[in-house]
Amino acid sequence: MAAPPPARILPLGLPALDVALPEGGLALGRLHEVLAPAGEAGTGFAAALLARIAGAQGRVLWCGPAPYGPGLAAFGLDPDRVIFARTAPDAETLWAIEEGLRCPSLAAVLGEVGVLDLTAGRRLQLAAERWGVTALALRRHRRPDHRLGAPRLEPSAATTRWRVAPMPGAADRARWNVELLRCRGGTPRDFVLEWSHETGDLAVAAAVGHRSASPFGSGAPQADAAD
């Protein structure tokens, strides 16, 4: 197999996250995995990523149970630009994701799956590389009761793997604990993100687990990327 074309990089506009990622942003046309062990924080994080990848014009495909339109719109992802495919079970969802990745008119495909083994992950990664469509595998915990265990951490073919869990927040903001568990060519780190419903803004409240993390707030230099 020929080497995949170099990925286009999308800075997320969150300096602390961008410096943790190689080349200063999220690699487009790659597979990224978001684990959501409890609650909907992971769904929110994935929706925020989708909104950034889609930009002002792009269309996205969302496979699996559809989220609530008004709630989704608050993440800056215009439901007009989201095609939903209500798929279940995983096999059907994986099929739909792969079909979506073959359609270069899409900016990204999100699929909600319970398990993503190495083989299935590689298929999606190859399709994403080949057609330049970004794949997001949202591995939301199916049971609303989070005590029944988090998704198992099997080896992954994804370019990045995130785990996003809710945290007790501050007043009107939702607060998420975002762990970058795996990142090719980057360093795993933890962050605390805050999301405001009123403004739709996502901001880094704290970068933990890395001593020299850039100070929160805006204006952090992006030039010297990690590693």
Binding site: R59, L61, A66, G69, L72, P79, D80, V82, I83, F84, A85, R86, T87, E92, W95, A96, E99, G100, R102, C103, P104, S105, L106, W131
Partner: peptide, 23 residues
């Protein structure tokens, strides 16, 4: 590679009506 219309057709025909759409 498929166009958007082709993608929608393929999803629609496999998944059945009412499962592919927008909100």
């Amino acid at each position: 590679a498929s166009s958007l219309a082709e993608l929608v057709d393929r999803l629609d025909n496999r998944l059945g009506s009412g499962r592919v759409g927008r909100l």
